[in-house]
Simulated scan of single mutants.
Amino acid sequence: MESFAQMMADLDGQRLPAWLKQAEATDLPPLKSLVNGICHYLAAVTAGLAMGASFDLLRLQILHAD
């Protein structure tokens, strides 16, 4: 899980496919459930990782526009 947390913190979606394969190979049902959920929404998760910082900036601009 540490590698997943680091990938999220780094907003590095390029590591996601390898992490998913590694996590799927474990014997941990909760981790496999997480993998299934991520795979179901893979495009959204990948996009979120790709735009993370820019999305935060956009959200701040919208909040301060009011």
Rank of each mutant, 00 (worst) to 15 (best):
T26H: 02
H64K: 05
L11G: 10
G13Q: 06
M7L: 12
L42S: 09
G52V: 03
Q6C: 01
A44E: 12
A53P: 03
H64F: 03
K32V: 04
D66N: 03
L34K: 04
L60E: 14
L31Y: 08
L63F: 01
A9H: 12
I62E: 01
L11P: 01
A9F: 09
L16N: 03
A5W: 01
L57E: 09
F55S: 14
G48D: 04
I38Y: 14
M51E: 13
S33C: 14
A18G: 10
L42K: 10
M1K: 08
F4I: 13
L28P: 00
G52I: 04
L42Y: 15
A50K: 11
A43H: 12
N36V: 10
C39P: 00
D66C: 02
S3T: 09
A47M: 09
T46H: 02
D10Y: 01
N36I: 07
P29H: 06
I62T: 00
L16P: 08
N36K: 15
H64Y: 06
W19N: 11
P30Y: 10
M1D: 15
N36P: 04
A44C: 04
S54A: 12
F55V: 15
A23T: 05
G52S: 08
K32Q: 10
L34G: 11
G48K: 01
D56H: 00
Y41N: 13
L42F: 11
T26N: 03
M8P: 07
T46D: 07
L60H: 07
E24V: 08
P30D: 13
H40R: 15
D10F: 03
D12R: 08
T26F: 06
A47H: 10
A18V: 12
M51N: 09
L63Y: 02
A23M: 12
L63I: 07
L42R: 12
H40E: 09
L60S: 13
E2D: 05
A53S: 02
A9M: 13
Y41G: 07
I38Q: 14
R59V: 12
A25L: 06
G52C: 03
I38V: 15
A50P: 11
H64E: 15
A53C: 02
Q6K: 13
Y41L: 06
A50N: 11
D12K: 03
G37Q: 08
L20C: 11
D56K: 00
D10M: 01
L16Q: 05
D27N: 14
R59C: 04
A25G: 08
D12P: 04
A44I: 03
H40S: 10
L63C: 00
L31D: 12
L34W: 08
E24K: 11
A9R: 12
L58N: 02
P30V: 11
A47Q: 07
Q22P: 01
D56V: 03
A18W: 02
Q14N: 05
I62L: 05
L63H: 02
N36M: 13
V35L: 01
A47S: 06
Q22V: 07
T26S: 12
I62P: 00
K21P: 04
L31A: 15
